[in-house]
C-alpha cells in the first residue's frame, strides 16, 4: 500500500478493490462496515482513531500523553533524515507517533487502552511507543482496570532509533510484568500486521491473546525466512489461523464482534 492509501484506512477514491476476493466495493460501504469487505470479510487496515470508535463506548475516550514526540537520537539518515521522516509522517497521519493510549469504557466497563497504528512508520516501536505503552500499563496498575492493547505493527522495533527501540521491548515488558503481578487482566488484540520486536514482546504477553482474521503475525519476516532456508513457505504461513492452529492465539475474532467479546472476557476475569 502506498502512504496515501493507508491514511484513510482504505484506498482513495470512490471504489476500492478487495485484495482477497477481488470484488469492487463502494468505499463508503466498506467504511460503514468497520473497514471489512462485505463479500469475503477481508479486514482492511483501520486507523487508531477508527479503532477507538469501534471498540469504546461513544465519547468515553480520554487520551493520554498525546504530545509525546519522537526525537532523532542517532542522527539516522537513510533515503532521508529520520528527523524529516518524523515530520512527514506526522503530517500524513495527524499522529505524533505510532501509538495512541488512554482510558475509556467498553460496554460500560472501564479500561485502559493502547493501540499501534500501522500508518505511522508501519506501526514500528520507538521510544515514544515504548513510553506510552509503559505508562499505560503503569496507570492500569494504579487504576486497577483491565488493559487492552491492539497491535498493528508491521515494523517491529523501529530501526531508526537503533538499540533504544529494542530496549522498548524490555521497558514495556517490565511494566506489563508489574501489572500482571498486581493481578491485572491484559488482553492483547493482534491485527494485521504484528511482527518482529512487537510480536516478541507485548503482543504475546497477554493473559488472553485475540487476533483478527487472516492477520499476518510472526517473528521473522517471510523474506528473511525464505533467504535463510531457501524453501517456499507453506500457504497460510504466519496468519492468525496458523497461529491459532499451533496454539498461540486464544480466539480469532471478527472486527464487529471484538467489542462484545472483550467485554465478555472482562466479566470472567474480575480484578477486584
Amino acid at each position: 500500500m502506498s502512504s496515501s492509501e493507508i491514511k484513510r484506512g482504505v484506498p482513495e477514491g470512490l471504489w476500492i478493490k478487495c485484495p482477497t476476493c477481488k470484488a469492487t466495493l463502494f468505499k463508503k460501504d466498506v467504511e460503514r462496515n468497520l473497514n471489512v469487505c462485505e463479500q469475503c470479510q477481508h479486514h482492511f487496515y483501520t486507523s487508531a482513531g477508527d479503532r477507538i470508535a469501534q471498540l469504546l463506548d461513544e465519547n468515553t475516550f480520554e487520551e493520554w500523553d498525546a504530545n509525546l514526540q519522537p526525537v532523532d537520537t542517532l542522527g539516522f539518515v537513510d533515503s532521508q533524515p529520520y528527523s524529516k521522516r518524523i515530520v512527514d509522517q506526522q503530517k500524513k497521519t495527524g499522529l505524533k507517533d505510532a501509538a495512541v493510549t488512554g482510558r475509556g469504557f467498553i460496554r460500560g466497563r472501564g479500561v485502559v487502552i493502547g493501540i499501534t497504528d500501522f500508518a505511522f512508520m508501519a506501526g514500528s516501536m520507538g521510544s515514544v511507543v515504548g513510553e506510552k505503552l509503559a505508562r499505560a500499563a503503569e496507570r492500569a496498575t494504579e487504576l486497577r482496570v483491565p488493559l487492552i492493547f491492539v497491535s498493528g505493527s508491521g515494523g517491529g522495533a523501529r530501526m531508526q532509533e537503533g538499540i533504544l527501540s529494542l530496549m522498548q521491548m524490555a521497558k514495556i515488558s517490565a511494566a506489563l510484568a508489574k501489572y500482571d503481578s498486581a493481578g491485572g487482566l491484559y488482553i492483547c488484540v493482534l491485527t494485521n500486521p504484528t511482527m518482529g520486536g512487537v510480536a516478541a514482546s507485548w503482543a504475546f504477553q497477554g493473559d488472553i491473546t485475540l487476533a483478527e482474521p487472516k492477520a499476518m503475525i510472526g517473528f521473522a519476516g517471510a523474506r528473511t525466512i525464505k533467504n535463510t532456508i531457501r524453501l517456499e513457505l507453506p500457504d497460510g504461513f504466519q496468519t492468525s489461523e496458523f497461529l491459532m492452529k499451533h496454539g498461540f492465539v486464544d480466539r480469532i475474532v471478527h472486527r464487529r464482534d471484538l467489542r462484545t467479546e472483550v467485554a465478555q472476557l472482562i466479566d470472567y476475569c474480575d480484578m477486584k
Binding site: M169, A170, S173, A174, L176, A177, K178, D180, S181, A199, A200, S201, W202, A203, F204, Q205, I217, G218, F219, A220, G221, T224, I225, T228, I229, L231, L233, P234, F237, Q238, F242, H246, G247, F248
Partner: peptide, 26 residues
C-alpha cells in the same frame, strides 16, 4: 539473532521470546 525458520514460527518464536523477556524483568 533468533532463528528465522518455519519450525521456529510454528513453535512460537515470538511467544517464547516475549515470555522470557517478561519473566526476566521480575
Amino acid at each position: 539473532g533468533a532463528y528465522p525458520g518455519i519450525g521456529a514460527e510454528e513453535r512460537g518464536q515470538s511467544q517464547l521470546i516475549a515470555t522470557s523477556i517478561l519473566e526476566l524483568t521480575r
